[in-house]
Amino acid sequence: MDHITFLVAVVIVTALAFTPGMIFAGLVGAVWVGAGSHGVHFDKVVEKVLIPAVASPVVAGVAALLATYLAYRLTDRARKKSVTKGFRAGQIASASLVSLAHGTNDAQKTMGVITLTLISTGALGHDAGPPLWVIASAGLGRRLAEVRWGVAGRMVIAWMVTLPAAALVGGVSASVVTNGGNIGAVVVALIGAALAGGIVLLSRRNPVDAKNVNDAHEVTIRNEPPAKVGTAA
């Protein structure tokens, strides 16, 4: 199997396993190694990625704060049972819309990265759109890749740790592929697949399903049987 196919496999596996922000960081790292630091337009990165990434949680937070406050104030003195029932129905609707917005966004990003890889290795022409199999696998992969992040602070810390890490991984992978030829590409592909598989296996130890999806964010991976407590005679 030629090294382009393996490179594509690596990108697909990592793209499906990591969140879009990490994909982007990986891209920056890989381009940095591949084309030198002038290959990365850092001012564009700040302008089009970092600033919106910081601004959007703030905007969403303010909107949610005001809307929730208003909802509470308006329905404060009304019949409790009706209000509860009404907002429960509303929550189903808004949760569905959140899924729609998130899905139409994430899959596009994944498809874009995969298509970018294909074009840059010459497997696709310059003006090509995403191939059908990319579109189909982006939809499939999303279910495997659903990760629930926790509270905002934990998210920020996670970003601060994993963004440079992802850039590093992207850079190292690119360097291995450039210098190692076919064997380099195979090694990177295998490591990527192993990491992705390992992460999926770990997450299956305590799966998130409809019963516990709204529980607290901290989950113990190892379940120990409760210690036997003796009763007083």
Partner: peptide, 28 residues
């Protein structure tokens, strides 16, 4: 984007809350 996001969110939730109040009025 900020203004429209905040504005439409507040407007939609307010209208929904008023709708729920209507249902509460009927059931009361």
């Amino acid at each position: 984007v900020t203004a429209v996001s905040i504005g439409v969110t507040i407007a939609a939730v307010t209208v929904f809350a008023l709708g729920v109040l209507g249902v509460a009025r009927v059931e009361a």
